[in-house]
Write a protein that binds this DNA or RNA. Sequence first.
RNA 1: GGUGGGGUACCGAAGCGGUCAAACGGGGCAGACUGUAAAUCUGCUGGCAUAGCCUUCGGAGGUUCGAAUCCUCCCCCCACCA
Length: 439
Amino acid sequence: MSGDVADQRETTPMSTVLDEFSWRGMLQDSTDGAAEHFAEAARTAYIGFDPTAASLHVGSLLPIMGLVHLQRAGHTPIALVGGGTGLIGDPSGKTQERQLLTREKAAENAEGIRRQLEHFLDFGAVSNSARMRDNLDWLGALPLVDFLRDIGKHFSVNQLMAKESVKRRLADEETGISFTEFSYALLQSYDFLELFRQEGCTVQLGGSDQWGNITSGIDLIRRVEGERAFGVVFPLVTNSAGTKFGKSEAGNVWLDPDLTSPYRFYQFWINTEDQDVVRYLKFFSLLPREEVEALEVSVRDEPHTRRAQEALARDVTRRVHGDAGLAGAERATQALFGGDVTGLSAMEIADIFSEVPSSKVGRDALSGAGRSLVEVLADCGVASSRGDARRAIEGGGVYVNGQRITEVDRTVGMDDAVDGRFVVLRKGKKNYHLVEVEG
RNA sequence: GGUGGGGUACCGAAGCGGUCAAACGGGGCAGACUGUAAAUCUGCUGGCAUAGCCUUCGGAGGUUCGAAUCCUCCCCCCACCA
């Protein structure tokens, strides 16, 4: 890298967006000239999101952060919701033909995604406000004959068949690939072309699995418009354990608080392994380089303080769930991992444990001799069966109101209910369950 | 269509008339140690009224005092040959 280029970057802050991606480890690959393209002027760039579900999960967080960095650097980010392509399905990375979404479902999901993206991007900025588009706007009204003439003409079936995702499916006699999915690359390329025409969008970003689709779009723009466009792809997020990133014991970690509570969301990040935490800080937080580097030192020299995990959890949770969501998650964490439950009032418990799974039980069931703990554990789902509950107690893994229970025949009665209203059950270190007394 | 091999618990895989709720490995859960990390070690891992009973070994019948194990029929996979 020569000196004068560096100087130029000093004076134009938006030139740094690829540098930003680069030091954060987010830059897997980019087409030639992409860095210069961003350096020269404020650009418009887009990323597509598939409306396969009504909520995004943390697996989509990296591309979202990509848009955030673009906007911060002065460029205009477009989030393209694939209301149209969602009806088709991208064969990339899929070994099976995809289940088709209904139009209603795709529209509903697109709307949910739209709401979530608003947490990350500024849609009301003066100069480079983020935009949201839905490709159903142009795909839905596209006459087949026009599509074949104007778009299909530019694609070589020979090249499409050479694509890795298509090749693998062709090799598999059993599954094969439908014409519908085979055509997916054309549709995504057409999206890029439309955004180029309508929005002056010259760059497409995406996960590294999108590289082929992105370059197809670039080619299409060159052929149809005679103009140059660019692509940037992010790496696949992995964790050091080799398991899929974004899964917790409870399954996918969603951005929707109704699907994954802010408390669970926060806990997902707090539990990040040392080996992954610095990489994740670069990917998912907006902390500046110096701070990330300081935290990296902290992970090395004083790992027990877990400052890096905390910084990560705070930054990401605040962005997704807001200050109130973060505060609630931290309060619950503090009470659950820091202190003793028995000292709290019913109101405090209700507040803190609103994040935690709960069930109700009738007052009369607990009066008198009470119910056997084994039964209660099995009924509320903390244990999968009575035998499981029994074994968990025998293994020393069950707590009532923070006190370890050792007697298998222990009963739960009204005197266990804090303020006569709540019993806090816990199995293992992290699994809490709140039993609310009714009536 | 033919021949051969096979279907066992969450997964992989032993068992091949009683001693089988079924070895072993993985996964999962819990415990210890820690830092709500990783690694390691330990225990548990069909259900229930837990020294006992009930339901499981592709499905349905049968033989037997007794079957995951033997017989019959059926279903499904895999390999090779057509």
